[in-house]
Design a binder for these strands. Structure first.
Length: 821
RNA sequence: GCGAGGGUGGCGGAACUGGUAGACGCACUGGAUUUAGGAUCCAGCGGGAUGACCGUAGGGGUUCGAGUCCCCUCUCUCGCACCA
């Protein structure tokens, strides 16, 4: 009696066999073409979710497919194991972060294995292990040496609920990216990575990453925010020095009527000193500095300022310009000083109206004169220069160049570029992270930990504080050391590194995960890296992907590696949606992969997540759709098990009868289509083509002597084509049919182009572009014969009645269009 | 506001360089089988007054022919947003 399809029985058995046979473990092999396929590693939260199932199913199809095509495929998995949820669990449940993390990793590893993903587990990496982060500390020291890691006091983003600092990239619309609480600002002594030193290269290589989605490159480009402009000196009245401003609108220079300084500008207080305004200026500066950073940089903040009492001179007009302190001017961008052109900048306009400052129109539309008195908003469009001395009459775009030339000639200013990108703040006032390998000595200042003393191990015997504060500053054992330079008592840095540092290089570690002599074995890295295909969520478009690109360039410049970009091709998969919303606990629309595996098996979970939508789009989860995928696998199961005797024999040659030839053709068309579709990551259409093949294979039943060969061929191809998607059921059926090798070690089926050829084609006949008939004609029909056949058609004749044929369009193999009127 | 990407049956989605719109699946309808339910199998399934018509957000254009190319409008999603 045939056995029912019971995934819960066969799947674990195959997973065990794969593991026992170390089927997925790879080594460097210079005789084979390598392919490094990587999916973003997960944070070990304890359970996989549908996003993981989808991400890793996509990756596994590609990995298994390329393996079958003969490539040496590196497909590793690991854990982004540092981070706050571990600390939160420690606080709420009293478990140590290390224990919590380890248990979660064990649970998730088991789940991933239960999904049947083809990872080389020998290369598993967990970033919270000293064997991993010690190399990150080494890189930190090298960066420190080169000035790429440095410390400065600055106003930083502070998340009160997470009790730590956030990088600019980790603040989303004023809220913490992780806990979504309001972010405020604090003055803190922080470590930074000098990512701005690579701004130009990070931007430039956007053009050199053709394998990345346009969307991601655009987001990175916007984030880096390069703008071209000029720096201009405005001489201070009564002093020898000048205020330097950055502007992208040098064409409006003649309209600059006052100056705005950031409250943090070094000259702010100095200029007001001794003036009647001094007290007002001091109060204003204090007030603004106390103000929340995010509120301060939001557009709807009322523009406010205060006059310093000082003046500078417009270098082109010679006018005296009052100098104001303005709350909307940011010290971190440009020079912290802005020349104010109220007629052509909306912010300056509002400011000028409020404080009754002069307005001068210098650009206006070609045919309309603007009146500064009655202007209701700044005119920011293009136009022609007026009130601008010798530049009058020039279109402003041209004037930009001319004025820039003029400024450079007169040595008043220089063309320059500015970036929006800021340096990456990596200090975190957290416990569960990689310690920053620095020691503070009263005499020597910050001293790097000697390389020989690495790693600086995170002590595991500490208890977390009540409010989530790091226990490191209170741990005498950790804290107290002697200065490596002078030997005097000193203390360790107690901040840990942002976890994005770990994820910036884990993909290199996989190349030689157990290597003990350095970050990685240079030969292994030279063989495997860069990653050929990276797959992950779009939410990392800026954060992780920009940091990784930066870190790669740093490692290159430190001499560790020879490539420029870490990920040659990037695929960003869409979210998993249910009932119109992203799956989330708060929405209550979460589907647990465990439940799916129990009810339908891993193969169904994989199949549905690949079939329901193309990878880049959001996937709408539908329980009935899952049933459909399960049903399909049952169909495949029965197709094989009910014809096992026939399938065990053979394969015998395909007969020449019509049904056999039709199935034979469909088999080879399917091989061709599925191969092409997997190559371009159109898994949903690949699967639907296999479904069609299954339908046609069923249609040939019941088997007769002469159709056996075609049937055997179709089934054997079908199982191999399906195996990257649903590896368990296909291996099971393959072995039942007498196979002795797992399908991942079989070769991918080749298609016979002569088999896909047809003798007859359906030619579409149109009259004036409208479909009127379909004719079955030989493939090699001549244009003349096709045209004649078309005009002979009864259906077509009716439409031609009373009309003259003016033209006939013939597209070989497709259609005949008769133009008549 | 700026930038990017989308709008195709009841639903998820197909359609390579312009050439049969709606593959495949879900849901639904009818039938077979069954004591019944489920499962399975067969058939149908864009709309419509069911032979000549209309249909890919709406409007215009190019073309023998447009979901696909061009222009305008609407709409949704995402990213950035006082960056001088």
């Amino acid at each position: 009696m045939d056995q029912k399809y019971m995934p819960e029985k066969i799947e674990p058995a195959w997973q065990k066999k794969w593991e026992d046979d170390t089927l997925f473990n790879v080594t460097e092999d210079s005789t084979k073409e390598k392919f490094y396929l990587l999916e973003m590693f997960p944070y070990p939260s304890g359970k996989i979710h549908m996003g993981h199932v989808r991400n890793y199913s996509i990756g596994d199809v590609v990995a298994r497919f390329l393996r079958m095509r003969g490539l040496n495929v590196l497909h590793p998995m690991g854990w982004d194991a540092f981070g706050m949820p571990a600390e939160n669990a420690a606080i709420s449940r009293g478990v140590h972060p290390a224990k919590w993390t380890k248990e979660n990793i064990d649970a998730m590893r088991a789940q991933l294995k239960r999904m049947g993903f083809s990872y080389d587990w020998n290369r598993e990496v967990s970033t919270c292990e000293p064997e991993y982060y010690r190399w990150e500390q080494l890189v930190f020291l090298k960066m420190f040496e080169k000035g790429l890691a440095y410390k400065k006091t600055s106003s930083v983003n502070w998340c009160a609920s997470c009790q730590t600092v956030l990088a600019n990239e980790q603040v989303e619309a004023g809220k913490c990216w992780r806990c979504h609480q309001e972010v405020s600002s604090r003055e803190l002594d922080q470590w930074f990575f000098r990512i701005t030193a690579y701004a130009e290269e990070l931007l430039d290589f956007c053009k050199k990453l053709p394998g990345w989605p346009e969307r991601v490159l655009t987001m990175q480009k916007n984030w880096i925010g390069k703008s071209h402009g000029v720096e201009v000196d405005f001489p201070l009245k009564g002093r020898d020095d000048a205020i330097r401003v950055f502007t992208t609108r040098q064409d409006t220079l003649f309209g600059a009527t006052f100056m705005s300084l950031a409250p943090e500008h070094p000259l702010a207080l100095e200029l007001a000193a001794g003036m009647p305004q001094e007290e007002a200026v001091r109060t204003f500066i204090e007030k603004t500095r106390k103000q929340d950073k995010i509120i301060r940089s939001s557009e709807d903040l009322e523009k406010e300022g205060v006059f310093t009492g000082a003046y500078c001179r417009n270098p082109l007009t010679g006018w005296d310009m009052p100098i104001y302190i303005a709350n909307f001017v940011l010290m971190e961008y440009g020079t912290g000083a802005v020349m104010a052109v109220p007629t052509h900048d909306q912010r300056d306009f509002e400011f000028a109206r409020k404080y009754d400052l002069p307005l001068v129109v210098v650009i206006q539309p070609e045919d309309t004169a603007l009146d500064a008195e009655t202007l209701e908003a700044a005119y920011t469009e293009d136009g022609v220069l007026v009130n601008s001395g010798s530049f009058n009459g020039l279109p402003n775009r041209q004037a930009m160049e001319k004025i820039a030339d003029f400024l450079e000639e007169k040595k008043i200013g220089n063309r320059t570029v500015q970036y929006r990108l800021r340096d990456w703040g990596i200090s975190r006032q957290r416990y569960w992270g990689a310690p920053i390998p620095i020691i503070y000595c009263e005499d020597c200042g910050p001293v790097p930990v000697p390389e020989a003393d690495l790693p600086v191990t995170l002590p595991l015997d500490l208890q977390l504080g009540e409010g989530g504060q790091s226990p490191l500053p209170k741990s005498a054992d950790f804290l107290n050391v002697s200065c490596p330079r002078c030997g005097k008592p000193a203390v360790r840095e107690t901040d840990t590194m942002d976890t994005f540092v770990e994820s910036s290089w884990y993909y290199m570690r996989y190349a030689s995960a157990r290597y003990e002599k350095g970050l990685f074995d240079p030969e292994a890295v030279a063989y495997w890296l860069p990653v050929d295909q990276y797959i992950g969520g779009i939410e990392h478009a800026i954060l992780h992907l920009l940091y990784s690109r930066f870190y790669t360039k740093v490692l290159r410049d430190l001499g560790f590696i020879a490539f420029d970009e870490p990920f040659t091709n990037l695929l960003t998969q869409g979210m998993v949606i249910k009932d119109g919303a992203k799956m989330s606990k708060s929405k209550g629309n979460v589907v647990d992969p465990n439940y799916l595996i129990e009810k339908y098996g891993a193969d169904t979970a994989r199949l549905f997540s690949l079939f329901a939508a193309p990878p880049e789009r959001d996937l709408d989860w539908n329980d009935q759709g899952v049933e459909g995928s399960f049903r399909f696998l049952n169909r495949i199961w029965r197709l094989v098990t009910e014809n096992l005797e026939v399938l065990k024999n053979g394969p015998s040659p395909v007969n020449q009868d019509t049904p056999s030839q039709a199935l034979h053709r469909k088999t080879h068309q399917t091989i061709q289509k599925v191969t092409e579709d997997i190559k371009r990551y159109h898994f949903n259409t690949a699967i639907s083509m296999i479904m069609e093949l299954a339908n046609e294979t069923y249609a040939i039943l019941p088997l007769r002597e002469e159709t056996t060969g075609a049937f055997q061929e179709a089934v054997r191809a079908m199982l191999r084509l399906l195996s990257p998607f649903v590896p368990h059921i296909t291996d099971e059926l393959w072995y039942q049919m007498g196979g002795t090798t797992c399908l991942i070690n079989e070769s991918w089926p080749a298609f016979d182009s002569s088999a896909t050829k047809v003798e007859e084609i359906t030619l579409v006949i149109q009259v004036n572009g409208k479909l009127r008939d379909r004719l079955s004609l030989p493939v090699d029909v001549t244009e003349q014969a096709a045209t004649e056949a078309a005009q002979a058609s009864e259906k077509v004749k009716r439409y031609l009645e009373g009309k003259t044929v003016r033209k006939v369009i013939y597209v070989p193999g497709k259609l005949v269009n008769i133009v008549a009127g």
